[in-house]
Simulated assay, not measured.
Amino acid sequence: MKDCVFCNPSLEPKQNVIMSNDYCMFLLLEQAQIEGNQLEGAGLIVPREHRETAFDLTIEEWKATYSLLQDVKRYLDEKCHPHGYNLGWNCGEVGGQHIFHSHFHVIPRYSDEPLAGKGIRYMFKSSENRRKNS
């Protein structure tokens, strides 16, 4: 996977490995490191090995993701002081996945956001997302 930006983080110069363990890494884009930015602190936990979706992770990778998530939360709580979090995986094209290397979104949320209090299901419950057969 020579062209994969998660297998080879150096391919994306604005992406930084903030912390890692034997099986996965926490990546932040430079813009997510700017205080007060819309996605301040938002990053991704990705497996070191190329796995297309979360469904392809090994047990070891799941455990390592959980362990790294705890470290990431401590880091973000100290550095960014969020008031909540959204966590999630996009799997498959229809599920919103655009880079086909599994990646777990860690998105700090802040009480001064216009959409504070709106969770990950907010857009799905919108009438604009009503299926044709319903």
Results as ranks from 00 to 15, higher is better:
107 I>C: 05
131 R>N: 13
87 L>Q: 06
107 I>N: 04
92 G>E: 06
120 I>A: 09
54 A>F: 13
41 G>N: 02
63 K>G: 07
90 N>Q: 07
40 E>W: 15
55 F>E: 09
73 K>H: 10
84 G>L: 04
124 F>D: 14
64 A>W: 14
97 Q>H: 11
59 I>G: 04
75 Y>R: 07
81 H>P: 00
15 Q>H: 14
104 F>C: 15
72 V>F: 10
129 N>T: 07
46 V>Y: 04
35 E>Q: 01
77 D>E: 06
64 A>D: 15
65 T>E: 14
119 G>D: 01
111 S>I: 10
61 E>S: 02
30 E>K: 05
55 F>M: 12
130 R>D: 06
134 S>Q: 11
31 Q>V: 13
97 Q>S: 07
132 K>A: 11
49 E>A: 02
8 N>E: 13
110 Y>N: 00
97 Q>D: 02
41 G>C: 05
120 I>F: 13
7 C>L: 14
114 P>F: 04
68 L>C: 01
7 C>W: 15
1 M>F: 07
61 E>C: 00
86 N>E: 14
126 S>D: 10
85 Y>W: 15
133 N>T: 08
70 Q>P: 00
58 T>C: 11
36 G>T: 11
64 A>P: 14
70 Q>W: 14
129 N>I: 04
122 Y>W: 07
125 K>G: 06
42 A>L: 01
52 E>I: 08
130 R>W: 01
125 K>S: 04
34 I>K: 11
47 P>A: 05
59 I>L: 03
89 W>I: 01
56 D>P: 12
45 I>V: 02
125 K>V: 06
89 W>N: 00
8 N>P: 13
93 E>M: 03
87 L>N: 02
60 E>H: 12
130 R>S: 09
78 E>H: 06
67 S>F: 08
133 N>S: 05
9 P>R: 15
25 M>P: 08
59 I>R: 12
34 I>H: 05
89 W>A: 01
17 V>D: 01
33 Q>H: 08
3 D>S: 13
109 R>N: 03
120 I>V: 12
19 M>K: 03
62 W>D: 12
59 I>W: 10
59 I>E: 09
124 F>K: 11
59 I>F: 15
16 N>P: 05
76 L>W: 01
112 D>R: 11
40 E>G: 06
74 R>M: 13
37 N>P: 01
69 L>V: 11
107 I>P: 02
113 E>S: 00
103 H>F: 08
69 L>G: 10
109 R>W: 01
111 S>G: 04
118 K>W: 05
47 P>I: 07
98 H>K: 14
37 N>E: 12
69 L>N: 09
37 N>M: 07
34 I>T: 04
26 F>Q: 09
123 M>L: 09
23 Y>M: 08
99 I>P: 04
93 E>I: 01
9 P>S: 04
51 R>V: 07
99 I>K: 02
67 S>L: 13
83 H>N: 13
113 E>P: 01
40 E>F: 10
127 S>C: 01
110 Y>S: 00
4 C>G: 10
120 I>R: 03
101 H>G: 05
85 Y>I: 06
78 E>G: 08
18 I>L: 15
90 N>C: 03
55 F>Q: 09
43 G>Y: 05
